[in-house]
Amino acid sequence: MHGMSQRPFLKMHGLGNDFIVFDSRESPLAMTPALAMALADRRTGIGCDQLIVVEPSEVATVRATFWNPDGSMSPACGNGSRAVAALLGGEATIETGGGVLAASADASGAVVDMGVPQFGWDAIPLAYAMDTLSLPLAWEELENPGAANVGNPHVVFIVGDPYAVPLDVLGPLIEHDPIFPERVNVGVAALSSRSRMVLRVWERGTGLTRACGTGAVAAVAVAQRRGLADAQVTVSLPGGELVITRGDDGHMLMAGPATLAFTGSIDLEHFA
């Protein structure tokens, strides 16, 4: 006999950035920080970079809530939004903490409109006013990042070689710096041309991942704002490539794969 709390789930990923997805449109699911942490554990739970709860929405096709492995919530998740788009199929809108996103999906992957990046210091947010085009700040060899909010806060450093940066050490230092009252995601990027970028991201509340969709959008937005990049940039992440395109309206479109890895069911009472 299955317990009443036996819940189906999907395991999805975008470029190896992996998600547990609960479709709770028909039966509500009470997610908590402790439950999210337990399920995200790769040894004793299911394991994921983010956990996504898909719910009914009054303003969009669905509402998506994103949970980090540390039990915190993230208002926006680019790869996760592509996973939700792939789950829904076709044209859809997704209500998130960062706003309502328009999305479309077909066999080749999913495209999500991530909206217009915000560059105001108070929109990032920063603890006090400074120029977000090039913050007058440094953490060891990383200095003068650009800052952007693309549904969540990011700083982006343009570097010679993203893989030479000890991001596992500097990422948490920067994420938790008091200058970022809501913490921050940290990107290190190198442009090989005006249309190609290599990127690594330390994700707020998660750490190093195979890919970060909002990180790619933020890095391209910063590079474009500095005049270093064209309207369309292919971003190479450890897990693969995303294509970021700035439309004439300033909206940033993120295109890339979203893959169903497996489905299963789990007795959530074990994790209560």
Score class of each variant (00 low, 15 high):
A38R: 15
A164L: 09
L142H: 08
G146S: 06
D267F: 03
V116E: 01
L15I: 13
P117E: 06
R226S: 11
A85C: 02
I52H: 01
D267G: 03
K11R: 12
V217I: 06
E143K: 11
N144C: 11
R210D: 08
L228T: 03
E91Q: 10
N152D: 03
P162H: 03
T209M: 06
L228R: 09
M252Q: 08
M12P: 12
G99Y: 12
S236K: 07
L142S: 05
D41C: 14
T96Q: 07
L208P: 00
A164H: 09
V235S: 04
G71C: 10
I266S: 08
E143C: 11
D113T: 04
S108Q: 14
A261S: 15
V59R: 10
D70N: 09
A138Q: 09
T206L: 07
P125F: 09
H176C: 07
G14F: 09
V21L: 15
I94A: 03
M31G: 03
V222D: 09
Q224K: 12
S74P: 00
A127Y: 14
G187P: 01
A60C: 04
P8Q: 14
F119Y: 13
R25M: 08
V54T: 08
T214S: 15
D113N: 13
M1D: 13
L39R: 05
A86V: 05
F157T: 09
A127C: 12
L237F: 03
V169H: 11
I46Q: 07
L39G: 07
R42H: 15
H176G: 04
G109R: 05
V53C: 07
A107M: 12
A60M: 00
R200K: 01
S74Q: 04
N17T: 07
A189W: 05
T234D: 14
N185R: 06
L15W: 11
G120W: 07
V59T: 12
V235I: 06
W67R: 04
L29P: 07
R82L: 07
D230N: 13
D161C: 10
R43Q: 14
L208Q: 06
D131P: 11
D131C: 14
G207V: 07
G78S: 05
A102D: 01
V84M: 10
G115R: 00
A218E: 10
G115E: 00
G256S: 12
I46D: 05
V198N: 12
P238M: 00
T96R: 00
G47H: 10
L10H: 15
T259C: 08
Y128D: 05
A129K: 12
A86R: 15
S193F: 01
P162M: 02
T214Y: 06
W121C: 08
I179N: 00
V222I: 15
A218I: 02
A34K: 14
V243L: 09
P117W: 03
G47F: 11
P257H: 06
R196L: 10
G14H: 10
Q50L: 04
A129C: 08
I46T: 04
T209N: 03
A127P: 13
A123L: 01
L35D: 11
E141R: 14
A129S: 14
R43M: 10
R25A: 06
G187H: 03
I244Y: 01
R200I: 07
M1G: 13
G16E: 11
G120C: 04
V169D: 13
S192Q: 12
S5A: 14
Y163C: 08
L170C: 07
D106I: 13
H251K: 12
W67G: 02
E269A: 15
